[in-house]
């Protein structure tokens, strides 16, 4: 188990770029991919894409972010990447349906994004579970599925 207790910097930092570039050429950069929800954590046990068992224990005042560098040594670096999110995009038929859908999504504690006339719901579980909660809306045409 490798304990990681701080953030060295970001991959975009000019001071780290050269070292990371060189290590990447030698395939010595390991990546930890985290869900958005897990990015909020300060302590977690996880595994890099190369199988290194990691224990992340950050100070409470530190926040993980996409591109955070947790380890930078001469022969290895470990960086964090946010998992690409999938969104369920919904199109309300009219204003009344939009109001009802917004209320429903709030009641279900869904994380949403407003995309003009569309409501996007972050899929933090199986898609069928989200669709099951929308059955009645889809069945009577109050909403339809739109493309992301």
């Amino acid at each position: 188990m490798l304990k990681l207790t701080g953030i060295v910097g970001m991959v975009s930092d000019s001071g780290l770029g050269e070292a990371l570039h060189d290590l990447a050429h030698e395939d010595r950069v390991e990546t930890i991919i985290l869900d958005r929800r897990d990015m909020l954590r300060k302590r977690l046990r996880t595994v890099t894409d190369k199988g290194t068992d990691c224990a992340i224990a950050l100070p409470r005042t530190t926040a993980l972010d996409d591109g955070a560098v947790l380890l930078l040594e001469t022969d290895r670096a470990i960086i964090v990447r946010a998992r690409v999110e999938t969104w369920l995009v919904l199109k309300p038929a009219d204003t009344a349906a939009a109001l009802e859908l917004g209320y429903h999504a709030g009641n279900l504690h869904w994380r949403v994004a407003f995309r003009g006339p569309l409501l996007a719901v972050a899929q933090e579980g199986p898609r069928k579970d989200y669709l099951a909660r929308l059955d009645a809306f889809l069945a009577d045409g109050r909403i339809s599925l739109a493309h992301d």
Binding site: R37, D38, L40, R41, K42, R43, L44, H109
Partner: peptide, 11 residues
């Protein structure tokens, strides 16, 4: 329906 904030707990 109760869940914990990741701001509060690690697990």
């Amino acid at each position: 329906a109760s869940t914990f904030s990741a701001e509060l707990v690690d697990y």
